[in-house]
Simulated assay, not measured.
Amino acid sequence: MEVLDTVAIACDHGGFALKEALKVALPDVAWLDLGTDSAESVDYPDFAGKLADAIRDGKAARGILICGSGIGISIAANRHAHIRCALVHDVTGARLCRQHNDANVLAMGGRMIGEAVAKECVEEFLSTAFEGGRHQKRIDKLGSC
């Protein structure tokens, strides 16, 4: 896996353990850790917003978001027009969200996915390019939704 850019990572309390495990499992990634910093209860929209801001401001090229199920934090992230966040549960989803959807944020559920699969998903997400071509016109239409 070759990572050329900083990757933002953020979570709520339900994703804290997986966030920390991913940082250890993938030490070659240039992580921009935006919190949370404990398993104490916090609100996932706040951390999705921090990650969206970091991407908007050019501090990171892509991002990883984790909450308990991955659902809430992915919904919150997709409220930002410049974010295409995909909730995935396996490597195939991680690959296809890049190839076909040009996703710039990957979401996972800390209570839904194991560490080994999550690591594989992040590796696939970071190493897969957008195919463009026939998929680009669909991405362009997302801007008009």
Rank of each mutant, 00 (worst) to 15 (best):
E2A: 15
A129T: 09
K141P: 12
T92L: 15
P27F: 09
V42T: 07
K19C: 12
E20S: 13
R111T: 11
F47G: 07
W31H: 09
N104S: 02
C121P: 09
T128Y: 11
F47D: 03
L26H: 12
D37A: 14
F130C: 07
R134W: 05
M108L: 12
K59F: 15
R84P: 02
G109C: 08
N104L: 06
F125Y: 10
D102S: 02
L65D: 11
G109A: 06
F16V: 05
E120Q: 00
F125T: 10
D12K: 02
Q99I: 12
C11T: 06
G133C: 05
D90N: 01
E2G: 15
N104G: 03
C97F: 02
L106S: 10
V122R: 03
I71P: 00
R111E: 02
R95L: 07
K141I: 09
V7D: 01
Q136R: 05
G114E: 10
G133K: 14
D140E: 13
R138S: 04
K50I: 12
G72D: 03
H82S: 13
G143Y: 13
R111P: 02
K59G: 15
K119E: 14
L106V: 06
D53A: 15
A118G: 09
D90S: 09
E124P: 13
K137A: 13
A54S: 13
G72P: 00
M112F: 05
R79A: 00
D28F: 08
G49S: 12
N101F: 07
T128R: 13
K137T: 14
V117I: 14
A60E: 14
A21G: 11
G49D: 01
G110S: 02
S38A: 07
G72H: 01
E115I: 15
C11L: 01
L22H: 00
G58V: 08
V122H: 05
G70Q: 06
A48I: 05
T128G: 12
M112L: 13
L96M: 08
C11I: 07
L96I: 04
V24H: 14
N78P: 03
L22Y: 12
V24F: 14
R95H: 06
L65N: 05
D46M: 04
G58T: 13
G114I: 04
C97K: 06
R134P: 08
K119A: 15
G58D: 11
D28Q: 00
D12S: 03
T92M: 15
H135I: 11
D5S: 14
S69L: 12
V117S: 13
A10R: 04
V105A: 14
T6G: 08
T92H: 15
A61F: 01
K23H: 10
